[in-house]
Amino acid sequence: MASLKDLRNRIASVKATQKITKAMQMVAAAKLRRAQAAAESARPYAERMDEVLAGLAASLRGAEGAPPLMVGTGKDEVHLLIVATADRGLCGAFNSSIVRLAREHAQRLLADGKEVKILCVGRKGFDQLRRTHRERIIDTISLRDVKQVGFSNAKEIAEKVLGLFEEEAFDVATVFYARFRSVVSQIPTAQQIIPAQIPDVVEGEEQASSGPTALYEYEPDEYEILEELLPRNIAVQIFRALLENAASEQGARMSAMDNATRNAGEMIDKLTLTYNRTRQAQITKELIEIISGAEAL
């Protein structure tokens, strides 16, 4: 049986922990708002980009010599997995779930006899993946010192990826990140970026008079524009993944810390009950001792 002093100490320590988790939860909530706003304001650009690319791709479909970024290298041998995770822990299963998805994907590819290369964005993903896939990790990018993910960060990663693609170091690239649905739900997602997955233009829309795609004049020609836009689109896709990830991370941390705070509260209640019981038991014991001592006289 723990002594009263031990119990008091434990209660104090759990209370201190609860204060920390509570503070972390509030910080995460504030950061989440900012991350969500950033993700929101990046949306128009990405949407426009998609629209224009879809139009261009539709008008160039089936054409000879389309850029390799769109149609691929024609092979499907080497896969590059870009695993975007957080640089910090204490956010529940956020990092693990992304890593799990990436690992399953890698396993499947390896079973099919493909080659897998991994590019880690964020330290946590690297920490987890290096245990099983150390020799496949080609690079790690840490965003630890970055307060707010900017387009320049995404561009840096995109340039690295494009450089590798030009050296023909891989055929297919896929980004792994957590899509932000709500504070309590983040969905680990795999998205292929090379060759580009371009949404099809809806058939009916194309035929309607408002169908913009066929009517455009291009300056310079379609091919050149596409060649310039595709690399930019890679950066945009990565940027989007990073922003979603940032929001998801804060959301996951917020709910993880909310749970931790609640658990700490429960623990404090339980410990306080034990403490009071023990105290009362001790008083009773002392009383019995005094009374039986008095009776014996």
């Binding site: 455009y216 004049e217 310039e228």
Partner: peptide
């Protein structure tokens, strides 16, 4: 206003 549709880099 009413410019012909086009896309340019």
């Amino acid at each position: 206003v009413n410019h012909a549709p086009m896309i340019s880099t």
